[in-house]
Design a protein around this nucleic acid. Structure first.
Length: 206
DNA sequence: CTTCAGATGCTCT
DNA sequence: GAGCATCTGAAGA
């Protein structure tokens, strides 16, 4: 199943956020395999970034996972009802992660649609289809990820991992031709000078 | 297409 | 008690 190894995550968080675009998240639930291709990410670096939950190495019950070895899942509850999926980066003890902000379905669309809307893909409105996985909360809902999965080791290929390409699942997709765009991160207006860090990466217009 | 209110509960001060 | 790395449906332009 060839999950990306811990070495992939053991490095500069901003660079890893960029390199995660196009990679494939695989999720196994109840014997079924779901997959989506990553289309949007953001980097968070505790050492120097006021937007990071572990800014200044602040360690609490919630942020403990950010200090874990690279290649773990950091999942937390936001706004009382949604979850955000991150991949822990940098060597153990350096709190940092990449937020997965968006994706597109590769496998298991039927189940993802039911997890997100309680409907089959055919029943979705055009608006629902267009915005299927374009947000961190949407992605977690479609992949059935909650705090239960916080701390999971992504390098073991158990119930959640990342692969280099859809080909690793035997799925052939058209090659990615969209440009990689860079911008400011979303929803961190409180973060003072860090609001301007260009640490968001996404595929541009088709 | 756009704006907008409301939902809902954990986390940290 | 305040705020949060958000989403949805409804309503308006």
């Amino acid at each position: 199943m060839a999950p990306l190894p811990s070495g992939f995550y053991d490095g500069d968080t901003v660079e890893i956020a960029r390199r995660l675009l196009g990679k494939v998240i695989v999720r196994e639930i109840q014997g079924e395999r779901l997959a989506c291709r990553i289309t949007e990410t953001e980097a968070y670096v505790g050492r120097c970034d006021k937007a990071c939950h572990a800014y200044g190495y602040r360690k609490t019950a919630r942020t403990a996972t950010l200090f874990a070895p690279p290649g773990r899942a950091y999942i937390y509850l936001i706004y009382g009802m949604y979850h955000c999926l991150n991949f822990v980066t940098e060597p153990e003890g350096e709190p940092a992660a990449v937020l997965i902000r968006g994706g597109e379905p590769v496998l298991g669309t039927e189940t993802m649609a039911r997890l997100r809307f309680g409907k089959s893909p055919e029943q979705l409105t055009p608006y629902q289809k267009k915005h299927f996985l374009d947000g961190p909360g949407k992605l977690c809902k479609a992949l059935a990820l909650t705090r239960e999965e916080n701390g999971l080791d992504l390098t073991r290929g158990e119930t959640l991992w990342v692969m280099d390409s859809p080909k690793d699942l035997g799925i052939v997709l058209p090659p990615e031709t969209r440009p990689i765009c860079t911008g400011k991160r979303i929803g961190i207006d409180y973060a003072e000078e860090a609001v301007d860090f260009p640490w968001r990466f996404y595929y541009g217009q088709k």
